[in-house]
Write a protein that binds this DNA or RNA. Sequence first.
DNA 1: TATGAATGAGTATTCATTCAT
DNA 2: AATGAATGAATACTCATTCAT
Lengths: 195, 195, 195, 195
Amino acid sequence: MSPRTQEQIEVIRQQSKQRILEAAFELMAKNGYEATSIAGIAQKANISKGLLYNYYNSKEDLLQNMVQQAFSEGDKVMQDIVADRPDETLRNLFVWFFGELRERPEFWKLITDLTLQADKFQFARDMLYAKLNEYSRFIGDLLIQMDYENPKKESLLIGAIFDGMGLHYIVFREDYPLDEMEQFLIDKYCKKKTN
Amino acid sequence: MSPRTQEQIEVIRQQSKQRILEAAFELMAKNGYEATSIAGIAQKANISKGLLYNYYNSKEDLLQNMVQQAFSEGDKVMQDIVADRPDETLRNLFVWFFGELRERPEFWKLITDLTLQADKFQFARDMLYAKLNEYSRFIGDLLIQMDYENPKKESLLIGAIFDGMGLHYIVFREDYPLDEMEQFLIDKYCKKKTN
Amino acid sequence: MSPRTQEQIEVIRQQSKQRILEAAFELMAKNGYEATSIAGIAQKANISKGLLYNYYNSKEDLLQNMVQQAFSEGDKVMQDIVADRPDETLRNLFVWFFGELRERPEFWKLITDLTLQADKFQFARDMLYAKLNEYSRFIGDLLIQMDYENPKKESLLIGAIFDGMGLHYIVFREDYPLDEMEQFLIDKYCKKKTN
Amino acid sequence: MSPRTQEQIEVIRQQSKQRILEAAFELMAKNGYEATSIAGIAQKANISKGLLYNYYNSKEDLLQNMVQQAFSEGDKVMQDIVADRPDETLRNLFVWFFGELRERPEFWKLITDLTLQADKFQFARDMLYAKLNEYSRFIGDLLIQMDYENPKKESLLIGAIFDGMGLHYIVFREDYPLDEMEQFLIDKYCKKKTN
DNA sequence: TATGAATGAGTATTCATTCAT
DNA sequence: AATGAATGAATACTCATTCAT
């Protein structure tokens, strides 16, 4: 007799949207953006194609929402890593990064994938550019405190190392000695006295 | 009037195949694998779609051949970089790599792109894995001669640096200080005395 | 708290139906039948899609009701144009028609559009056929009183003129000299003495 | 052994294109542009959807080609109607027009349909505008020779009569007394001495 | 009475691949 | 060896309509 309340509707909406995002994430992370079809996402989410378009205006809109959500989940943690000494903070950063990579390799794969198609996905390039600058400055500050000679270049180098190792781990997985490399990096960069 | 000899036919075949590979390289490097159509390749190569399928069984087969050729071209140069001292050889390797990156960034972008879709392009993963091992061993040998403590890990790290910087340069281009980073790396790794 | 009376309900029903018809009229006149969506109508009428289907069985049913109402509004005016002398009545008819055309060109466009799709919108054909006959007979009677030789054919001709000029004005708008043509027609047909 | 010659290919192409145009014409004339699907056209032409896109870039491109061909078929005749006396020329024009209407009512229906969607099909509006001006000037010249008082307005009126009657005939077909109206018009306008 | 989430059949368009010539 | 006409399955996206609440 009475229609659903605003709240009930909102709950339903959020559930559906979440199901769609999750399905999209799984498929796109696995197969890439282009190779993932709307039909496939809808099927995986157990809803109709039509419903998907009720919530997202286009495939790209869905992608953006998905990336945003995935990033925001990762962002929260960054605040907890600051320690008393810069070398400890840096160590925490390394640990956090490798942890992320182990936990959500598919996500990083997708991000890298999108970034490569910068022409089509400007927002991905911009997002990554912002991240890279953010990390570089953060790391640069630490390196200054640690008396490095070229803190700026060194921090860019560490950024390259992160993305390079990320790429290798994403691709080679168990064939890549991630644990050893993590330890190696920490030993290399996170001593009280630098090289 | 007179029928072509076996040899003549073979020459024509090779020419056509080569023209196809070049067209495929240009287009795929520029626009990516998915966005490059067989029709476009055939047109650019000035041959018919039908003929293309005479030489390559599928779009993926063509891709594989193209990548192989592009890699093998790179291989030739590798022999010329060996110098008298290991640090000089390593420097040559750095110079060669950054040169490659500057000259054919689109190709590296394509390779990275393919690698990320490991499920679909197993061959790309395998090829890259072989390359990574090859370079690592090569670099590892140099580092041993240079008395590095962890030559194996250090060489893997250099591999990561290469791919990481490659990724950043591919994406950010003129916004990325490639020249400076090259010099920075050379200073860091190619002195007579190591760190 | 107290349940609404039958009357109250009926009033609400009529208001909702009216709002829907008006929204449908505006949108369909502007954008055509096909290009107007049920969702758009419901939104403009400030009601839900579901409710719309409570009142009208289908998009076409809604269309039919809308056209009917729009026509009936026009009918009311028709009674006021009768004057003492037939030539004056005819003049009033001309003035009324051109006035309509200027005020609601989009509506006439829609009607013409529907009429053309006779297969799909039989009702439009029938409605227009009835209108044409009604006007023809009305005009025919006037022409008889004005001693025209072929009042029947002449009245059909006037019908054709109306629709023809309507079409031209609808399409060419400010490029079409509607005012001049109106005067020209009145001079031609509405003198005491006929041609 | 040898591929088809240029000529053979051209013949095949023309046949296919013609089949497509005819199917498109039939369906669009009957149901209108929007209501006609590419799938339907392909089916009626007994070819695949893909082939249709080999020859026409889009649905609208197909439409334009179709309209152009249909118009060009009609244009040829116009030259033969000029007679010694202006009233005879005008009579020929009337006869030609009504003949066209009887022979290809569906075409005129489609043209009218497109014209009404001037927003989407600018080319149709432009085409019709050019036609209307062309006819008006042509008729205007004749009326001047026949000493009409308002040749310009009178010719525009005749234009409206044409399109109005066309519309009525298209819609009402056998219910509309086209023959009688044709004769009536000829008697009205094509005497040596005018009204 | 009223809601809007959900559906499913529909749309135009693309493109790798086949095959008769 | 060489052609390009022809196919068919896939793509993203739309929208009238239904139905549980």
